[in-house]
């Protein structure tokens, strides 16, 4: 590869030395830029990891109360009625925050859900605020998330 232009350079150097050198430089520059473009392309195609495609999500506005007061701290999940991605978030001072679908996309996909609200961490059991029944999928609260919205929900929990 490298030998060819060098050979050509030797032959014609006495005649058009300056022209040939500039041609060489241009070729070199072109091949270098080609190589970098190719490398960039290969990195782009080869290293990009495929994430599973999720359906489009919509934002949710929800409030949670416990015995009429805003629920201080809990976890909330939207579990789909039909097999599909679930969304998980936090309850902080009665507001539902940080709802992510499959830890990948903010918001909740359109469809029917069972909402469960529960304490965390479950293993340590340090704070037991929310009655266990609200954390069971089969006893959760049914909601429908629509594309039109407004997707505003109020979850009223009772300890009694």
């Amino acid at each position: 590869m490298i030998a060819w232009p060098a050979c050509r350079l030797q032959i014609h150097l006495p005649v058009h030395a300056a022209t040939k050198v500039s041609l060489m430089l241009r070729t070199l520059r072109l091949s270098l830029s080609l190589f970098f473009a190719a490398s960039a392309f290969s990195v782009w195609t080869g290293c990009s990891d495929r994430l599973p495609a999720l359906p489009p999500t919509v934002p949710i506005s929800a409030k949670v109360t416990l015995d009429g007061e805003p629920l201080q701290k809990a976890q909330i999940s939207f579990s789909p009625a039909l097999p599909g991605p679930a969304s998980n978030g936090q309850v902080v001072n009665g507001e539902v925050l940080d709802l992510w679908t499959n830890g990948q996309k903010q918001g909740v996909a359109i469809g029917e859900y069972t909402v469960t609200i529960y304490d965390q961490p479950m293993e340590a059991g340090a704070v037991d605020l929310v009655p266990d029944k609200y954390g069971r999928i089969r006893e959760g609260i049914s909601v429908t998330v629509t594309a039109e919205g407004p997707n505003q929900f109020l979850f009223e929990l009772n300890r009694k």
């Binding site: 599909g84 991605p85 679930a86 998980n88 990948q104 529960y118 965390q120």
Partner: peptide, 30 residues
């Protein structure tokens, strides 16, 4: 119940939802 690498989340008593290993809430039921 679901095919490999499903979009349907796992469900355990302590489960963090991340993009390749999603969770369907946390609980000991189901």
């Amino acid at each position: 119940q679901e095919s490999p690498n499903t979009l349907v989340g796992d469900r355990l008593s302590t489960c963090q939802s991340v993009s390749y290993a999603p969770c369907n809430g946390q609980g000991v039921d189901d």
